[in-house]
Design a protein around this nucleic acid. Sequence first.
RNA 1: GCGGAUGUGGCGGAAUGGCAGACGCAGCAGACUCAAAAUCUGCCGGUGGUGACAUCGUGCGGGUUCAAGUCCCGCCAUCCGCACCA
Length: 768
Amino acid sequence: MVEFPYPSGQGLHVGHPRPYTALDIVARKRRMQGYNVLYPMGWDAFGLPTENYAIKNKIHPKIVTKNNVKRFKEQLQSLGYSFDWDREINTTDPEYYKWTQWIFLKLFKAGLAYKKEMPINWCTSCKVGLANEEVVNGVCERCGSEVVRKVKSEWMLKITEYADKLIEGLDSVDYIEKVKVSQKNWIGRSEGAEVDFTLKGKEDKLRVYTTRPDTLFGATYMVVSPEHPYIDKYKDEITNWDEIVAYREMAAKKSDFERTELAKDKTGVVLGGITAVNPVNGKEIPIWISDYVLMTYGTGAIMAVPAHDDRDWEFAKKFNLPMIQVVEGKDGNVDINEAAFTDVATGKLINSEFLNGLEVKDAKEKMKDFLEEKGIGNRKVNYKLRDWVFSRQRYWGEPIPIVNCEKCGYVPIDESELPLMLPDVDSYMPTDNGESPLAAMTDWVNTKCPCCGGPAKRETDTMPQWAGSSWYFLRYTDPKNTEALASPEALKYWLPVDWYNGGMEHTTLHLLYSRFWHKFLYDNNIVPTPEPYQKRTSHGMILGENNEKMSKSRGNVVNPDDIVNEFGADTLRTYEMFIGAFELSASWSNDGVKGCRRFLDRVWKLQDILTDEEGYSKEMETKMHQTIKKVSSDFENLKYNTAIAAMMSLINEFYKVGKVTKGEFKTLITLLNPVAPHMTEELWEIMGFGGRLYQTSWPEYDEAKTVESTVEIAVQINGKTKATLAINKDDSKDVVIPKAKEVIADKLTGNIIKEIYVPGRIVNIVMK
RNA sequence: GCGGAUGUGGCGGAAUGGCAGACGCAGCAGACUCAAAAUCUGCCGGUGGUGACAUCGUGCGGGUUCAAGUCCCGCCAUCCGCACCA
């Protein structure tokens, strides 16, 4: 499976065919090998660009989508992909989004969907709330406009509940390593402890989270986030309240971007009149507020150990706060005045009473035990992953099937009411007040509570684009089912997706979201596998001829239609596979396209040198077997460029000997068929081989016949090649060495120390 | 700062520790042509040499090895993520 595209108004980009062709090759090859291959395609068609285009041009998004899909489909079909069009799906089809809504209801009933007042990332241009993942460098991922914080009541999905399962599941799947690593980093699991510090003279404890409980004796002050509730709670006792208020206002004004990206310089204010007590040694320490502590992670408060944490160190230096070194390096030459000592691998504890002499790893555990025994703290795991903001204040998305009743609260609509259709509206303009355009449709909004029958209002937010793509692979298995998202039999037969290819940019969004939904469905016995995708690969981007990302403004965009018209679909397919290593980005080259067309022409013209002979040479037989072997394995290992090179090399060989047998030709066009299906199928028919090429069997090779009987090896003196020598591959060292010496006899002027023969590879004479 | 990747001719790129540069592009020369395009043939990393050949050469500096683009240690550069997550 390849990621289904968003059918944009621009039509297919030259980047689309790269992964589509790659997996089409695998699909076609596997079918020829007798597998039942499902290679599906569909449309991820809800989303902002369509809606924006619709608004601008006053065309209903439904119509825009229909037109875009038509165009995309024509383009894909012109490229000859073997997609199963009978299973085509579209996320905007009510028969499809019925099940997207159905899954949402399941999540809601399981307590995994909830509504929360929270500051959201509000795109000032799209007028919509964004998930954290959609905010890039402080601006909207899609339109590049400023993102500000705005408090709204939003639907949230508890993806955090699945954090551990999402990490553990990675062990059982075959994803490229960098995908696993970025998913793990994104989830950001960390193990540590929560510790209660006493507030001097008060009942309340100030709770912190730390991953370094071993350094507790080194805590010299504490820091709370400007939003920490204790600040207001102890307002009356704080002696410098004006200063605190001023600092809080300054911090609140900063956008998230300024706060995290720009403000590396530490700022802060000490809380006057309130101090904390370190629970392990009774020391009284000051409490500061600073925006380097985030309310959204851990407890919103930290213990600061400047000797062993870079940020605390910086803060302490700036405000002249004391440091206590509690970890000593192996060599004893650590100077904490120079920098914080953060190495956990080599350190040993000092100045820490019962921890002294322990290694960091052991000290952590001992301190955790101690905290739990004394009841002043406990082990705690935290995650960077936040819950998924699932509301969008837009029109072109799946309506959230919830009703808000004054008496009953948020009530799910009955499953029999699904799909909850997106109503036709006159204006789907986004609003400045943050309400969805649906909110203006009073006759749609006003409804009856499914629970008490009283008056109630429909939810007017819609789902984000990621909703429909979080489960689409399931629908492919049984796309027309009206009773279920797919029948259990179909799901059992096809799942998991054996091989899923997609862009790296979807690693922390789509891939993580869909794994989350799938795991939830698995826990509810709706799908038969714990993971949706068995194998995940990623393709590199195709850049413009100038090595820059293709874009209209750079004027380096290549339209695939132009290439198809001028050179043919097979050439485009071949070129995109030959362009370079599949996982790496590659620059477009019009000359390179021509070269691939030339190769296909040369294949075509092999017809001129066909011979009725067969099996005329041992060398050619070997070459054939080698090529079958190489192409077969390269296709499976994403090494399309070398597979094509091998076929180029083979036809060069045919032209060199001036002839090609029908059998050889048949094998060649079969190997090439997955790459260039149109031309090879035509050749097959011209040759009268019978039936259809795509329905024939994949060529087999004989391992024994891939080995050359005579080989040319290098003869080296001290590792430098001096001559080459043709030998029999089975010749023993006793036979080869004398022959080799003969070839380089005039250069054997010193004392021979060692004679090395690597069978079939090389002779090296070591001489002094 | 952290994580990941990449670094090889004029260019895209090949090389289970075993002849670096497969394959393609561009370029040069020749054939065909009135001519051009297309096509075909040959050459095509640098330096020296008419030449066989010699010598240097895979980002930089060390190391292991008979042998290193490949393995180890230490750097540099570029790209992509993440980023005050305690």
